[in-house]
């Protein structure tokens, strides 16, 4: 067949295919962008222009209803907000961080490993977690006889530096002799959670590969007494600087025995 003939049989295909497809597009635009928003907007008391803009996404809100408003005042449980810039500052260990850390030796040990198990170990803790707690002491979101005063003496930059310093220190070795036989139900709570109480697995935030909230602390290698006391504080609402009750809502569902056993498990057995 000659090329001219071929073009001839192809031409109607080209034209009709384009016409049909563009018509369907036009139909959808007329109904989706004009008819539906205008009709729905009228019923909701919106003018046609607003309704169309909302339907297309230029203005916020639905074309079919009025937008509610809120005049509530912010009453944040913490002043810490994670930002790209803040996240980038973690991870660079500085001399200044080591110097500030000298002020922590008395309670948190020379290398960030506390002698008194009532105090937390800081060595190997996540920088974001240390930053959040120091910042909360400073702003009053978390209160402690000693820590509040110390944190108020630190600038934001210094908080980042000392947090980064401890994050990169070697953590406490687990002492195998202190490891206890762990109950099956405690391991279950750590790895699987308890569906009947709506309790997520502890490791879904505190595990090594968790991907939970940014400020989640590492619990492995922490001191048992400290862990148990904090869980009790969350449970009784004595401590409430967790964003959106993430820890309070968990701790309140734990029994006192579970709190003891979980603290022991993380402090003596779990290692990553």
């Amino acid at each position: 067949m000659k090329p001219a003939e071929l073009r001839e049989i192809d031409r109607p295909w080209r034209i009709w295919a384009s016409v049909i497809i563009v018509s369907i597009l036009a139909f959808s635009v007329v109904f989706g962008f004009l008819v539906l928003p205008i009709v729905q907007g009228r019923a909701a008391g919106l003018d046609a222009f607003t309704a169309i803009c909302r339907a297309v996404g230029i203005l916020p809100g639905s074309p079919a209803v009025k937008q509610p408003t809120s005049e509530a005042k912010a009453q944040p449980t913490t002043q810490v907000a994670w930002s790209t810039d803040l996240m980038r500052t973690f991870g660079r260990r500085t001399q200044a961080g080591a110097e500030i850390a000298q002020g922590c030796v008395a309670c948190h040990g020379e290398h960030g490993i506390a002698a008194d198990p009532q105090n937390p170990n800081l060595a190997g803790q996540s920088a974001a977690a240390i930053y959040k707690q120091l910042h909360d002491y400073k702003s009053g979101s978390r209160v402690h006889d000693v820590m509040t005063g110390i944190a108020q003496g630190l600038e934001d930059r210094q908080i980042v530096e000392v947090a980064t310093h401890f994050a990169s220190s070697a953590r406490r070795d687990l002492d195998p002799t202190t490891a206890e036989v762990v109950d099956e139900d405690v391991i279950r709570l750590v790895e699987r959670g308890d569906p009947s109480r709506g309790l997520p697995a502890c490791n879904s935030c505190h595990g090594f590969n968790a991907g939970g909230p940014i400020e989640t602390p590492t619990l492995s290698h922490q001191n048992r007494e400290y862990l148990a006391r904090q869980l009790q504080a969350f449970k009784t609402d004595a401590r409430r600087n967790d964003i959106y009750t993430r820890m309070r809502s968990v701790a309140v569902k734990l029994t006192d025995r579970e709190i003891e056993r979980l603290a022991t498990f993380y402090a003596t057995t779990l290692s990553y």
Partner: peptide, 11 residues
């Protein structure tokens, strides 16, 4: 937005 959802729905 609902308009673009409608468009893609008809396709």
């Amino acid at each position: 937005s609902s308009a673009f959802k409608f468009l893609q729905m008809s396709f």
